[in-house]
Design a protein around this nucleic acid. Structure first.
Lengths: 222, 222
DNA sequence: TATATATTTTAGGCAAACCTAAAAACAATA
DNA sequence: TATTGTTTTTAGGTTTGCCTAAAATATATA
């Protein structure tokens, strides 16, 4: 198949198109790619032609682009590389959450399959990255898990924090204070009807968090 | 100073020029750079002009290039990155010795000072890479240690294996069999005058190795 | 539906990093 | 020293990935 090595640029376009396409289901406009990559629409058109010729996307003039099956496959591999590096940077090199994306953006283009496989093994085959996003496996398969809100739990049910919506500095600091991070176990103790805040058990302590805070934390039931 | 980000190409040229210059002491010919990088001499001349304009090297037309002080500084940082990644690939990702160079060649161009500092810390500030080459510290300083031959030891003196000269597959396999690797402790038991082979204690066993073999192993006295 | 506005494409250019072919400078040696 | 051979540079070309300006198409609105 298309086992041809892609350039860094091509990889970035493909990843962006995949992300905009909602898993390959939506047509993507030239303008939206332009905005995401900060590249002029005319240049995007150039690259669209190039990727089309390689059958990684299909393009209808003036209408938009759709990512192909082989395009999706490659995009998932790039995402896999990105997220594995993020786990490494966060868990091993002790980078903060908000510092890892940019570096992973560079590391993801180092193309050695063996490198990624060995890294995956070294990290013990993580399923999610530090942002809570799922990591595709070698075959590009993703473990879809239901992400729910804390308030969807019943009293005494437990969940694992799997996604933080709000990425602001202050929110990040709050979570740090509450010892809440991706992977933390949370038990619902009580729901307070008055203002929809919830009482939870986290890090062996019970705290009450507002509706707004709990809405910004997604969990998976266990 | 010249805190301008260099391209991957510029970094590769600078590293090669540094390596050819024997620590900045020798003038480097255009042809030698061409051969090492597998790039035509005409292209090398182009890049030499570019690096000269940035004061990373000095160039005398038709004579050769000398690396500047700031050029050396940058080259040492690239070498530092390369060797730290090699330690990571070998020690953590369990790559073989002979597989790491190519991948490190790519990783070395990911430019984040914090990344390298955190990696250095994670690896516990290693002094040598898996080939036995010294790793410059953050300031570009290198721990120079006398590398001697096993036969330079006196009877019962000990040394640490610090460099393997021959990089052939077969030699590598032989070392594996003898349990000799970078960092191994070797004690000289006897020198055999007849053919200059030596009897050594390695991995708690005594073996006799030929002059040829011992000449391909450099050690540092302890 | 006609017109204004927004989106996308085409056309032509530019810088980086390579190339080949030919000219210039240097080195070696008859 | 004149000639031959090697090394280096110059000159001009290519590809990649970007750009701006203008033309073509699609969409929105009066």
């Amino acid at each position: 198949m298309s086992n041809i090595k892609l350039s860094k640029s091509e990889e970035n376009y493909l990843k962006s198109i995949f992300n905009l396409s909602e898993f390959g289901n939506k047509q993507v406009s030239t303008n939206s790619i332009s905005k995401i990559l900060n590249i002029e629409p005319a240049s995007v058109t150039d690259m669209i032609k190039k990727l089309s010729k390689k059958n990684l996307i299909y393009h209808e003039k003036y209408k938009g682009s759709t990512i192909s099956k082989s395009g999706i496959k490659i995009a998932l591999q790039i995402i896999r590389r990105h997220r594995l590096w993020e786990v490494f940077l966060h868990d091993k090199l002790k980078f903060n959450w908000d510092e890892i994306h940019e570096i992973a953006e560079e590391l993801e283009h180092v193309s050695s399959e063996m490198l990624i496989d060995n890294l995956d093994k070294f990290l013990k085959y993580p399923k999610i990255d530090p942002h809570g996003d799922p990591i595709p496996n070698k075959l590009g398969e993703i473990d879809f898990v239901d992400k729910i809100s804390i308030s969807d739990l019943k009293i005494n049910e437990k969940g694992i924090v799997s996604r933080i919506i709000n990425e602001d500095e202050e929110f990040f600091n709050l979570l740090k204070k509450l010892k809440i991070e991706i992977g933390s176990e949370i038990t619902l103790i009580d729901k307070i009807d008055y203002d929809n805040s919830v009482e939870i058990l986290i890090d062996k302590k019970s705290v009450i968090i507002s509706k707004d805070i709990s809405n910004n934390i997604k969990i998976t039931k266990i």
